[in-house]
């Protein structure tokens, strides 16, 4: 910096906690797990299954991150994943690629509907995506005849779920690449900056001449497409997709996004924070499984929800405190 700085930068503890709190917690829990449960916990299989499981939540949460950064919300992702998964499984006979593309297309279509209704007609994102949640779920049930859609075992569809590279499932490599692309898009493209400006102050963004409506449509399409992909991943991993799959994914995704440091009111967010949030929430579940495996105490899996919920509350409290401080007159 060459210009004299009149306002000193203030890296506050609160800010660090909000931005890096999830990462710190993740590292602490991994170390804790490795020390307490030893080799078992650290073995490749545990990590592999953990990561494979995380991939689909991560995809949904990535799309959700962008939606929330514009100040919106997408409740339809779980249903869209189910719909995408059912479609992919039913088309799996045609091969991996057509099945995947079909799932992506279905997701994009629902996302487009969400985006147009929100941006063009000014409807509340909560209501729009609640409606499409119901629609997509209904279509999935209809298509699968209220049962599971089973993938064609002869096709290469299910191989996708078994591929791994350097001991890490391919699905998770894809997730990593997509998150890197998402982070780059957020930081270094007009689209990313428009997302943050729209969520930060929509009126201002409009008056600045930014394409607010187009940006909103884009994030919902992105979210829908990624949800469709998550459904296809599920199908490839398990060989079949229950029409009732994906229930509650939207809430898991929202929780991961918020834990990762993205403000629910929009305008501030972190793509990698979301990834950390996903890993963290899944790790809590994993740790409970291991704790039960020791047989010393029995923690019901219901406690997992309680712990996740408490975590979420702590993060939201922290966010509110930070936001209030910002709103205070300077």
């Amino acid at each position: 910096m060459t210009a004299p700085v009149h306002v000193a930068p203030r890296p506050r503890l609160g800010r660090v906690l909000q931005q890096q709190g999830a990462l710190i917690a993740l590292v602490v829990l991994v170390v804790f797990g490795a020390l307490r449960y030893g080799e078992q916990f650290a073995t490749g299989f545990n990590i592999q299954s953990l990561l494979a499981d995380d991939a689909k939540y991560a995809l949904v949460a990535l799309g959700m991150t962008f939606v929330i950064m514009t100040g919106g919300i997408d409740l339809s992702v779980g249903s869209v994943a189910a719909l995408g998964g059912v479609v992919a499984a039913q088309l799996s006979g045609a091969g991996l690629l057509p099945a995947m593309l079909a799932a992506l297309g279905v997701g994009a279509a629902v996302g487009l509907a969400n985006g147009v209704l929100v941006a063009r007609y000014g409807l509340a994102p909560f209501l729009v995506t609640l409606a499409t949640l119901l629609v997509a779920r209904g279509l999935a049930l209809q298509l699968a005849d209220a049962r599971s859609a089973v993938a064609d075992p002869a096709s290469g569809f299910q191989d996708f779920g078994r591929w791994s590279l350097l001991g890490i499932p391919v699905s998770f490599w894809i997730v990593l690449v997509l998150f890197a692309a998402g982070a780059l898009a957020l930081h270094a493209t007009d689209f990313g900056r428009h997302v943050l400006a729209t969520g930060g102050n929509e009126d201002a963004a409009r008056l600045m001449g930014l394409p607010v409506d187009r940006t909103k449509v884009a994030v919902y399409v992105l979210s829908g497409t990624l949800a469709g992909a998550a459904g296809a991943f599920l199908g490839a991993q398990t060989g079949s997709v229950d029409a009732a799959a994906g229930q509650g994914w939207e809430l898991t995704a929202i929780a991961a996004v918020v834990v990762g440091g993205t403000l629910l009111t929009g305008g501030v967010g972190s793509v990698f924070g979301t990834l950390v949030g996903v890993l963290l929430l899944q790790l809590i579940f994993n740790l409970i499984v291991f704790e039960n495996g020791r047989g010393v105490i029995e923690i019901s899996s219901y406690w997992e929800s309680v712990i996740r919920g408490a975590f979420l509350l702590a993060v939201v409290l922290l966010q509110v405190r930070l936001t209030r401080r910002r709103a205070a007159p300077t």
Binding site: H194, A197, G200, A204
Partner: peptide, 16 residues
Amino acid sequence: VNLVPYRSLAENVCIG
């Protein structure tokens, strides 16, 4: 002021 509060001064000047 019709700008975006959470973004940097630089971004508010140059965005678009």
